[in-house]
């Protein structure tokens, strides 16, 4: 049963990945004007253009081009960025860790805030303290409705520019590169600083992380709080919750000790979905805080119409999304014994 479930999920993921590849192929080939022109320069002769066309495979029919593109992908070749003139794969390799750091911090905040808020809202639903539920509801809808770039701008203006509590931009204090340089293990600065015991660097990164992570965490916090509330209330409406109440457990205990585990399945799945969403949302935040991640890279790629780079970003983020979904599906199987049945 379990094995068949795994195989089916994997097969689905493969179909999705193929679709993702086709889309990114279309994006990559949609170079404005002529890719051969971009590759050779505007003053190239006709024969140079023809040679470039042949080299790039642009004279081949589209399916052949797609096949080649697939072959390139398998070898880790995502093409060359028109803007940085570097291989897109290596560009992404250097930009992704900073993004994962930022999105990871935001998601951590969102889970730490969203789940307790959802529990609170579920606990005080209706009743005399219904105000708690309404506040959480309004707060989470606000968080979900706020354009993340507006949030980022306001946080930056208030807490960095005006109050000066946090730095305005950057990932860490660049002066530290000379005073306490970081030895690189994972490329994720905060992790490297942690495992090498580089306290000065760790403090600096965390200090820089607060504002962008907060801006990015708003949406995930809102949806996680709402989903936690809804899933908990759904569980609490089941017969077993009445049974647990009848055994002498209070409302909060029934929610936290008995319902949270079953409710965590949809919440967990949501976390994975929202992670990918936050990764895309980071495109809107990073350039404001000058965070050296995928978002800043994408913003530049968009403004310079760098289609191979955009295709690479699309592919990478979509793959992260597919892998996360798969991972969550498997984790769910472990969390909720009922899922194993089907």
């Amino acid at each position: 049963m379990l094995a068949r479930h795994l195989v089916r999920r994997l097969a689905q993921a493969v179909v999705v990945v193929l679709g993702v590849v086709v889309v990114s192929f279309l994006v990559a080939r949609a170079v404005p004007g002529d890719a051969a022109v971009s590759a050779t320069g505007a003053r190239a002769s006709a024969s140079e253009l023809a040679a470039a066309r042949e080299r790039l495979g642009l004279d081949q029919p589209l399916p052949v081009q797609l096949f080649r593109y697939l072959g390139d992908l398998v070898r880790g070749d995502l093409g060359t960025s028109l803007h940085t003139r570097q291989p897109v794969a290596s560009d992404l390799g250097s930009a992704l860790p900073a993004s994962l750091e930022l999105v990871g911090a935001a998601m951590l905040l969102a889970v730490l805030l969203g789940i307790p808020l959802g529990i609170l809202a579920a606990r005080f639903r209706g009743g005399r303290a219904g105000g708690v539920d309404v506040s959480v509801r309004v707060g989470s809808v606000l968080a979900v409705s706020a354009p993340v770039f507006l949030l980022a701008l306001v946080l930056q203006l208030v807490f960095a520019t005006r109050l000066g509590w946090f730095p305005t931009a950057g990932e860490y204090d660049r002066a530290l590169d000379t005073t306490s340089p970081l030895s690189v293990w994972t490329d994720i600065t905060v992790v490297d600083a942690l495992i090498t015991g580089n306290g000065a660097m760790l403090a600096s990164v965390l200090h820089h992380l607060v504002l962008p992570a907060l801006a990015l965490a708003a949406y995930p916090t809102g949806v996680i709080a709402q989903m936690t509330r809804a899933a908990l209330l759904e569980e609490a409406a089941q017969d077993h919750a009445r049974m647990e109440r009848a055994l002498g457990f209070g409302r909060l205990a029934v929610l936290v000790r008995f319902s949270l585990r079953a409710a965590s399945a949809p919440v967990l799945q949501l976390v994975a979905l929202v992670f990918a969403y936050a990764l895309v949302n980071s495109f809107l935040v990073e350039s404001i805080f000058n965070w050296p991640g995928l978002g800043s890279y994408t913003a530049t790629a968009i403004s310079s119409v760098d289609t191979p780079a955009i295709a690479g970003v699309t592919l990478t983020v979509a793959l992260v999304y597919v892998v996360l979904n798969l991972a969550v599906d498997l984790a769910q199987t472990a969390l909720d014994p009922r899922v194993r049945l089907t």
């Binding site: 017969d239 077993h240 049974m243 008995f258 585990r261 909720d336 014994p337």
Partner: peptide, 10 residues
């Protein structure tokens, strides 16, 4: 409901 009244995750 026999099974429904027992917590499915425990």
């Amino acid at each position: 409901s026999p099974q429904g009244s027992l917590n499915p995750t425990m």
